[in-house]
Design a protein around this nucleic acid. Structure first.
Lengths: 116, 116
DNA sequence: CCGTTGTTCAACCTCTAAGTTGATTAGATA
DNA sequence: TATCTAATCAACTTAGAGGTTGAACAACGG
């Protein structure tokens, strides 16, 4: 697997279990047991998922007695958002073009495609 | 691997080669050979990457003679953006809290942590 | 000190991702 | 028809993801 930060983040997000964990953490700090509770898989499996999220910088783990409380760290999500930003113009542009096309069809001038 | 749309999209984006392909496609349609040219890997490997992108709905392939021109489809990126949106409040909130903390430090009242 | 709880480590299995090379198909052209 | 180009298909290798179970460690409570 690629090891650059963005790839690590995307890979971490490419799993429904891990996204569910993040959703739970968005509501506040939680222990591994609490996080594992909703899932039909072993605690160890969840622990591995957390390690993936940690490596991507999406969760930070504290230490309180025998617990390792997890908290959400959203910095990598901002990176993703920045990356997406480069394409936003793209899809907004596409929408505009589609919109124009729909207007053209409504106006009954659809035969005149001047698609560069 | 998970097969839900969001997971497919994130997985597709979790590779620098595929992100570079998307960046190239953002500038316009391209053939497989054109897309493969910058990379130090076989054409077949790039073809596989395109298949992954296609499965995620990020590229659409046409047919023109012996060429299969690829175009960027940004709808899945919007899905990602929507998903991210649920966390935006989170990290903006975090920033605010960090900001407050910095202000508190600047004011010399840093000992009084009332962290719920 | 002993047992319980929370969590991780280690070994293992299975499946798939990502690359390779070689053969094959589809269409253009001599 | 023969051949060149564009791209895919097929078979294979290697490495890692994602799950399991069982053992180990660390901290608390009796």
């Amino acid at each position: 697997m690629a090891t650059d930060p963005l790839s690590l983040t995307f890979a971490a997000l490419a799993d429904p279990t891990r996204r569910a964990i993040l959703a739970r953490l968005a509501e506040g700090e939680a222990t591994v047991n609490e996080l594992a509770e909703p899932f039909a898989m072993s605690l160890q499996a969840v622990s591995k998922h957390l390690k993936v999220l940690e490596r991507a910088g999406l969760v930070i783990r504290g230490r309180a007695a025998q617990w390792r409380p997890c908290t959400l760290e959203s910095a990598p999500l901002e990176e993703v958002s920045d990356w997406l930003g480069r394409y936003r113009q793209q899809w907004e542009g596409r929408f505009t073009r589609l919109d124009e096309e729909l207007l053209r069809i409504q106006n009954g001038t659809e035969g005149e495609q001047s698609h560069e």
